[in-house]
Design a protein around this nucleic acid. Structure first.
Lengths: 163, 163
DNA sequence: CGGCACGTTCACGATGTCATGAATCCGGCC
DNA sequence: GGCCGGATTCATGACATCGTGAACGTGCCG
């Protein structure tokens, strides 16, 4: 039913991976890490070798190397260096991946808030410009709170669904 | 007290603008539009010409042209083409800029959700991979809700402060 | 009506990012 | 101990992005 030699029949999995990959890209994650992460999410087996990832995503092993370094550094995946095996295994971090991702945003937003506070302090008190900057800072502060709320809500949702 | 010929004494305003500019950049807004927007926020006068922006931000008029096109297209600023004057005026959009910005994210997140639903549908029902994708979609759904809540909370905050 | 200032557009050049391919390194295996 | 598959690193090249400079178009002034 499908031409037997091109990425249309290789599996719905690929399509799903590319979909999530593009979404994560829009969220700021570089292309290749996003694809690797999406693939690990979609793959039924809970661990993959670098070679499997390279084959599945149609890229060179070098690209995988860079991508997994990014993902490990950001605490999204884990390298299981099992003894007595040629290939290292990569798998998703245990527990609540998305919760960790949300929580990781909080200190970042704190940094933004700190920077905006300094920016406000640089402006003439009482001036319209300063008022607008204060408004901006307040908005970011509220956004931070919203993110904290999301983290809590997601934690509850996650607990409820993982029993 | 400061060397009289370099961007350290030109004014605290510049520093504040660059600070907010970098923050907005991290939020996904391209560099130049971010700087222009930050400057319009910080500037006490409520409108600027393109030439003024170019001078203040130390860039060519061409760069300003591209930046304002981006900002106008995204509904953040307005071009006041006043009759009988050499220069067009740019100013912030009326009312609640940040509220508009937050609200603008909602349809975008709806798009993501829609895409993730399709991705889930592509995966084998009952498989671990599909379960993880469903979890992902649920997380995005909660994030969307959190954004909607933020929009509402900010609207209240904004109303309260602008009387 | 001629000049002029302002804004816009286009092609060029610089910059940074990213995936590739080749060389290197590390570890099991015969 | 010597191969060999797998993974990592580095330098090259492609690609996209972005700001500049020069040319064009436009609308006020003198």
């Amino acid at each position: 039913m499908n031409v037997p030699n091109y990425p249309c029949h290789v599996g719905n999995v690929q399509q799903a991976v590319e979909r999530l990959g593009r979404t994560l890209e829009d969220g700021g994650i570089p292309r290749m890490p996003a694809r690797v992460f999406a693939y690990l999410l979609a793959e039924d087996r809970d661990h993959c070798t670098a070679a499997e990832l390279a084959a599945a995503l149609q890229v060179s092993p070098a690209a995988i190397s860079g991508a997994v370094r990014y993902l490990i550094h950001n605490g999204l995946i884990i390298k299981d260096r099992r003894p007595s095996a040629r290939g290292d295994l990569y798998r998703l971090v245990d527990g609540d991946v998305w919760g960790a991702m949300i929580t990781a945003r909080l200190p970042q937003m704190d940094h933004y808030l700190e920077s905006l506070d300094k920016a406000v302090a640089l402006l003439e008190p009482g001036s319209p410009g300063r008022a607008r900057f204060e408004e901006t800072r307040d908005c970011f502060a509220l956004a931070r709170e919203a993110t904290a709320d999301l983290a809590e809500r997601w934690a509850r949702h996650h607990d409820a669904h993982t029993r």
